[in-house]
Amino acid sequence: MHLEDPLDELVGDAREAVRAEADRGGRKRDFAAMIARAHAIDPTNLSREAVAEAARFAPVVALPRPRRAPALANDDVRTAAPATTPRRRFGWLMAAAAGLLLVGAFAGAATQARRTEGSATAIAAPLVAPSPTSTSPTAGPAPGSSRHVSKDMPVKTDGEVAAPVPAEAPAAATLADDERPVEAGEPTRRREATPRRCVEPRPTETTTDEAAWVALDRAAREAWRRGDTEEARALLSALVRSDATAATIELAYGDLFVLARQADDLRALTRLWQRYLDRFPRGLYAEDARVGLCRRAPKGEASACWDLYLGTWPEGAHAGEARGPRGGEEL
């Protein structure tokens, strides 16, 4: 599991600070001044009589709005609520996935295809953007076998309960917009007003998270398809740092291998192999990653590397090479 993203913590503090400022009260809603300003912007569109009439409306001063929940100090949050801390950093991704699902654009086909193809081609073959109309038996997920999204996967984005909104200060001349019926065409719900890290996690979160990874994976492939390899790399890097399923992360690593290879970035490739092996010592691409490391190992380390390979894959596809003259190369 990853620790809470420090960016989310900082953003949460900023959000609370802004809310506190906004709810502080004491602001003067001066309708007359506003109309006067409108007249200054366009005197032809608003008569002096209108300004004079507006001047009869007294300003309204907003009273402080009661806070929905006391803002916790960071330390309090960290120490008091770890058990109920949702995976806040994934919130936007969850919503991203929901949005994508709503658009009807699920495209996990290529990922699924790659998942079924095995390690031999995974590293070497560049990722091919999925074709929605592909009829290849490996182009799409097998019926009922989609690991990214199941058809009955709940989508959490809009399912969160709207927070009760406190009443407008009594001094206000009219009802706040929060209190009136929602207009047609407006967004109907606001997400939980308290910091998301304080919200009870829902039992559906795990599956919804996985849908979010699909969204990220898809965005990466779309970026790749349009030639934005930097973006694709960034998205895939985020994916391998996530809590997605091991299979999803492995596939993301496979894509990163290809991108690094395409960019002829051997240093990055070597780092990726190492990180992959640290996490997946017997993973889908582990054998190829180990061989790659051994081939590029400094001379003094190549022998030990090949020994490691043979210890894990004594009958591996590269066993002959491992038992042969053990060279190495300087990076």
Partner: peptide, 27 residues
């Protein structure tokens, strides 16, 4: 998304873009 905490769909609607575009922008 991050400060007003709108859902992706709401945020996309506000910005007049698709949810996918919004997701990438947020990222």
């Amino acid at each position: 998304r991050e400060l007003e905490e709108l859902s992706m769909v709401e945020a996309a609607a506000r910005a007049g873009v698709t949810a996918n575009t919004m997701a990438v922008r947020v990222f």
